[in-house]
Amino acid sequence: MAAAAAAGAGPEMVRGQVFDVGPRYTNLSYIGEGAYGMVCSAYDNVNKVRVAIKKISPFEHQTYCQRTLREIKILLRFRHENIIGINDIIRAPTIEQMKDVYIVQDLMETDLYKLLKTQHLSNDHICYFLYQILRGLKYIHSANVLHRDLKPSNLLLNTTCDLKICDFGLARVADPDHDHTGFLTEYVATRWYRAPEIMLNSKGYTKSIDIWSVGCILAEMLSNRPIFPGKHYLDQLNHILGILGSPSQEDLNCIINLKARNYLLSLPHKNKVPWNRLFPNADSKALDLLDKMLTFNPHKRIEVEQALAHPYLEQYYDPSDEPIAEAPFKFDMELDDLPKEKLKELIFEETARFQPGYRS
């Protein structure tokens, strides 16, 4: 834990890192770190609560700039109880001085990944967590956004079992017609939660990839272990087919990539493993919904509104309290091709509203 900075004593240090967030945020305490930044909790002297502050230093890398800009653009436009918001952003007053960006968010005690390492969940908890994931996802999908990296560590939890989806750095506007060349190379989302079509096709992607990830998360809540822990690309596919069985001819016809289709045709026939054999203690309604989410063919996979209306979630289902976005989200430009200098300018502009004396 960093010592509390005395008023006016300059930035606090946390594990050798400068955290320049005073005077409003003090009493910093280390939480963890990701690929390009550290997260601390801090005391907000204005709202009198502890908050989470993520320090991001992305400006050396085009990919990190892209992810940072995506996350900020999306989260500043989203407003939903099951999606983490941005409360404040701290950065230098000029673009030349801006080396880091500090993002202030609600402090959540833990995440689903940490929880599943230590606790076996009751059916009631599984049901409530799944409902909140789908409630947040309904809003995301209504904005025409794909999260693309749903996994237990991106689901934040607090002691009252509130759940918030975080990390929109890989999110995209849904565009089933656009052929994202190089899709697989830039697709760094965790393999275990990846839909089979991501490994088999490169053309376009749809909201059904997020539903697949939610199915993987439900299976993990039922058993405290990942359902498809593939060691590499082909191993991942083999794990999936080992449980779902061989795809039907109709399902194979959806695979545009001939090499991928021929690979699947070359494999020995596998039978589907019954879900109640894998999860003998699970609620039968939970397994019915799991089956509809972990469907090989993305066109037959359940959609988020149908999933919310499934009998497993009937005690929570309330369409009048499951809000959607006001308007579909649009990125003005494809960020993939922009140089990091341009992305830095866009991050600077996007964060201006939090600067003292800002006038829109």
Rank of each mutant, 00 (worst) to 15 (best):
A2W: 00
A3W: 14
A4E: 00
A6I: 08
A7M: 06
A9L: 05
G10V: 15
P11N: 11
V14N: 03
Q17T: 07
Q17G: 07
Q17S: 04
Q17C: 08
F19G: 11
R24N: 05
T26M: 11
T26E: 12
S29A: 04
Y30P: 02
Y30C: 10
I31G: 00
G32C: 15
G34V: 15
Y36K: 09
G37A: 11
G37R: 14
M38T: 04
N45V: 07
N47Q: 12
K48W: 07
V51Y: 04
K54F: 02
K54E: 07
K55Y: 11
E60Q: 08
E60C: 02
Q62W: 05
T63S: 14
Y64I: 12
Y64G: 09
L69D: 04
I74V: 13
R79P: 06
H80N: 10
N87Q: 03
D88M: 01
D88A: 07
I90S: 01
R91E: 05
R91F: 03
P93Y: 03
I95L: 13
V101A: 12
Y102L: 07
I103S: 08
E109N: 02
D111F: 02
D111V: 14
K114E: 13
L116N: 07
C127H: 03
Q132I: 09
I133A: 02
R135P: 02
G136K: 04
L137D: 10
K138S: 07
Y139L: 13
A143H: 06
L146I: 02
H147F: 05
H147V: 08
S153T: 01
L155C: 02
L155N: 00
L156Y: 08
L157M: 12
T159D: 10
T159M: 13
T159P: 11
T160I: 12
L163F: 05
I165M: 04
A171N: 02
A171C: 01
R172D: 07
A174F: 03
T181V: 08
F183H: 06
L184S: 13
Y187R: 03
A189P: 07
R191I: 06
Y193V: 13
R194L: 12
P196S: 12
E197V: 14
I198Q: 05
I198S: 04
N201I: 15
N201W: 07
G204A: 12
G215R: 14
G215I: 07
C216I: 05
M221I: 15
L222M: 13
N224G: 10
R225W: 01
R225Q: 02
R225L: 14
F228I: 15
D235E: 15
Q236P: 00
N238D: 00
N238P: 10
H239Y: 12
L241M: 15
I243Y: 02
L244S: 08
L244H: 03
L244R: 00
S246Y: 00
E250K: 10
D251S: 02
C254P: 07
I255L: 12
I256K: 11
I256M: 12
N257W: 08
K259S: 00
R261W: 10
R261P: 10
N262H: 07
N262M: 03
L267Y: 04
H269K: 11
H269S: 03
K270S: 04
V273R: 01
P274H: 12
W275A: 07
N276E: 10
L278M: 12
L278C: 03
P280M: 14
P280N: 08
P280L: 12
A282L: 02
D283G: 02
A286M: 01
L287I: 08
L287A: 06
D291F: 05
D291E: 13
N297E: 06
P298E: 05
I302E: 08
A307I: 00
P311E: 10
L313D: 05
E314H: 00
Y317T: 05
Y317R: 00
P319A: 07
P328G: 06
F329A: 03
K330T: 02
M333V: 02
E334G: 03
E334Y: 03
D336M: 05
L338W: 00
P339E: 13
K340Y: 09
E341R: 10
L343H: 11
K344A: 10
I347G: 09
E350D: 15
T351R: 03
T351G: 07
F354S: 13
P356Y: 00
G357L: 10
Y358W: 12
R359W: 15
S360W: 10
S360L: 14
